[in-house]
Amino acid sequence: MSEGTMSLTLKVWRQKNSTSKGEFKTYPVSGISSDMSFLEMFDVLNEELITKGEESIAFDHDCREGICGMCSMYINGRPHGPKNAITTCQLHMRSFKDGDTITVEPWRASAFPIVKDLAVNRSAFDRIIASGGYVSVNTGNAKDANDILIPKEDADEAFSAAACIGCGACVAACKNASAMLFVSAKVSQLALLPQGKVESQKRVENMVAQMDVEGFGACTNTGACSAECPKGISLEHIARLNREYFSAKLTSNNV
């Protein structure tokens, strides 16, 4: 167990609600242990703020094990901070040095309005899923699970897409605030599996249309989304989405 010896300067975005103007505020923190997670460091800061009579900093978080996708801090210009393939909650203070200044902002995208401080509204993602990110199968309609044979490679590839946690880091990382990586992960997962094939044309058209309605930007294949994705979702899924989309557009009358 290491003693808490680090001192840091935090510049944190404070904004009362979606309509008010925000600003950076500077907070010194000390007694930080390298074993702490980044969010535990925020817990320490918030306890201090409350004790001093200042309102704590609002931030989204829940599982704190990198899977729920709720935490969403933009740290020193990178979604989820300096390390690759982890969420903010999995970032530990051993990734920083004593004396560092750390800038923390919310996800910035017009499709993700700020709720308060570092918390944003990502319900646009839910609406995209509601537009087609599913297989239309009511409970009770299923046949025996082993009646559907799926090559291991396809199952593994579908799983690698399905690993998306819907955190929105891809949008935050993109200069156009595009949601292509998020949308492609679901399109790709279901396009790879026989269960999802039946509706694949309609799905990709509807989900892309909904993405546009929500105000996400266009994809220019820069790849920042994939580079910053805590689950390492590959750009290949965007390529697969594009193939699905173009073939759907050429052959269907759906949307």
């Binding site: 297989v135 009770g140 044979l149 291991k152 997962q189 999802g196």
Partner: peptide
Amino acid sequence: TYIIDQCVAQGVPFAREYGGLL
């Protein structure tokens, strides 16, 4: 047993063997 059937039908990518079975 129905749960597994239902989840597979929804596209839940359970681990599989090389023969394509669960």
